[in-house]
Design a protein around this nucleic acid. Structure first.
Length: 117
DNA sequence: AGTTTGACAGTAT
DNA sequence: GATACTGCCAAAC
């Protein structure tokens, strides 16, 4: 199980209408300063996984990865569909929708499973 | 084997 | 507050 795959597990568990940040995902995976690697992992994530990558934003709530969704605003539109509110076109309301993976009670259980040899 | 490159974050001015 | 600087570390090349 490499780092990228663990990122996918976490991202797949972000609930509809909620968002989280690169740093919080990294922290939940035990790399408190590995935020950049979360971005790296998403960048090369297989599209077949259908990951809700639109729910991952940077620490300011900015849709820093919107350019990777083909059409600009595609990421914005997906989030609006889910009921996420925005402070402006590229900034979600983090206060209202933040979800911290470290608070997910099932996360430890899942990472134990995927890390098993 | 050394270098480059990130969808970033924390700390220090 | 807003920049600037620094750490991060797995992959691709």
């Amino acid at each position: 199980m490499d780092f990228a795959e663990r990122v996918y597990v976490v991202v797949a568990r972000i609930p509809r209408g909620r968002v989280t940040t690169f740093g919080r995902i990294a922290r939940a995976l035990g790399s408190p300063r590995g935020a950049r690697m979360v971005g790296w992992a998403l960048n090369r994530s297989p599209s077949a996984l259908n990951l809700p990558a639109q729910r991952v934003v940077n620490r300011n709530g900015v849709l820093s990865g919107a350019v990777h969704f083909g059409h600009p605003d595609a990421m914005h539109d997906l989030l609006v569909e889910e009921g996420v509110s925005f402070l402006d076109e590229i900034t979600v309301d983090l206060e209202a929708h933040l979800w911290d993976p470290a608070e997910d009670p099932d996360l430890d259980y899942l990472t134990v499973i995927v890390d098993a040899p």
